[in-house]
Structures are given as C-alpha cells and as structure tokens.
Simulated assay, not measured.
Amino acid sequence: MLDANKLGALGTLISDRLDVALEGLSPSAAALLSMLHFKPGLTASRLAKIAGVSQPTAVRLIDGLERQQLVVRGKPTGRVTPLLLTEAGRARAILLQQRRLETLDTLLSPLVPEERRRFEQALDRILAGTTTSRAFARVTCRLCEHDLCGPDVCPIGGRASELERREAEADNHQGDR
C-alpha cells in the first residue's frame, strides 16, 4: 500500500501544480477551452460530457468564458449551437497547454532519460489498463495536448479503439448466429 500512498501524493502534487498553471481558470473551464481548440464547433451538451460536468454547469462555464471573450456562440442550427474560440480564446488555450506541459515536465526533471523511459512505459500500462471506453478516454484526456499524443501513441485512445474493435467483432459474431 505504500506505493498507492505515494501515488496519491503524486496526484496531489500534480493537481496543485496544474491549478497554478491554469491561471485562475477552473479545470473544467480549461477543459472546455482545450476541447474547443482541438474540436471547434462542439456544443454545450457535448462539452459537458467530455468535461464530466452537468449540462447546466457547462452552460455556466461557457457563459463565463464568453464574458471573458474567449468563446463565442456560432449560428444555431435548429436547437444546436456550435461554440468557437475567439482569437483570445485560441491564444489562451495554446498558452494553457504550454504551461501545463512545462509544469508536468518540471515534475519529471529529477529522472534521468532511462528512468523517464521506464516511467513512461509504466504510465502507458496504467493508463491503458484503466481505460474502459471511448467516453472514458474523452473525459480522461480533456486537458491533453491532442496534437502531441495522437492515436498511435496514446495508450488511452489506443485501448479505447481496441475495446471498440472487440465490441464490433462481438456484435458481428452475434449477427452470424
């Protein structure tokens, strides 16, 4: 249990450091900015699912980001309103990603290259082993730099794809009966 306790301490350290890197934005608001940076045009409902918050909470977060002139509502199509980043929102999302990665990289600085490689391998196993679905992957990776960790190297996305393939194969197998 000592290793689990140390992992908890690391989690707290990461959380505390990231709170500073987000510069006054809540993790949920930062997640909305990040997701809109990588996937412009998402709706409040979709963002709520990804950020792991209720739809009313997502709307309040979007309202706050809109007041800060970081987000604008696009032209509604029926009951669907796409959300987009402003230029200031895009710049803030990029800055948040840079600060987030710099902060996390600093935590890894005590490790020599070989230790970092082994640590990354262990992280990949933990992340893949805890991934349960594509929805889980979206929520877990809501603050990730998606251009850095694409589908070929992301243990969470890779595992989610594997689970989807297995489910499709099982469905096809069921259909053969």
Rank of each mutant, 00 (worst) to 15 (best):
E164A: 12
L96E: 07
L95Q: 10
T131V: 05
A135V: 15
A91D: 15
L101M: 04
D105I: 11
E162T: 01
E164W: 02
D152V: 07
L148T: 12
F119A: 15
P151H: 11
F119K: 04
D147F: 04
V153I: 10
C149P: 01
C149A: 04
D152E: 13
E87K: 08
Q121L: 06
L104G: 03
T86S: 05
T86A: 06
F136S: 14
L83P: 03
S161Q: 01
E167F: 00
R142Y: 09
Q121H: 05
A135D: 15
S161W: 03
F119G: 05
E87D: 13
R92K: 14
A128T: 14
R116V: 02
A168V: 08
D105P: 07
I156V: 13
D124K: 09
G150F: 00
P110C: 08
C154P: 00
L148P: 04
D152H: 05
V80T: 14
R100H: 11
V80R: 14
R118P: 02
E162I: 00
T132L: 06
R165I: 03
Q97L: 12
L83M: 09
P110G: 10
A160K: 02
A160V: 07
Q98E: 14
S133K: 03
D124S: 13
L84M: 13
E87C: 06
V112D: 08
Q121P: 00
F119E: 05
G150L: 03
R90K: 15
C154N: 07
L111P: 11
T132P: 02
A137Q: 10
C144E: 09
R92W: 01
L143F: 06
T140L: 12
G158P: 01
L127C: 04
E162A: 01
G89A: 15
T81P: 10
L163M: 06
L108S: 04
S133W: 02
P82Y: 06
Q121G: 07
L104I: 11
P155S: 08
D105W: 14
R125N: 05
A168E: 09
S109N: 09
A128Q: 13
G158H: 03
T106F: 11
L83I: 11
R138L: 15
L104C: 07
T103N: 06
R159P: 03
C154R: 01
R134A: 15
H146F: 13
L95D: 12
T103M: 06
G158W: 02
R92Q: 12
R79M: 10
I94V: 15
L85D: 02
G89T: 11
E115T: 04
T106P: 00
L148H: 10
E114W: 00
R166L: 09
R125T: 08
T130C: 09
R99E: 09
A93Q: 01
R99H: 10
T132N: 03
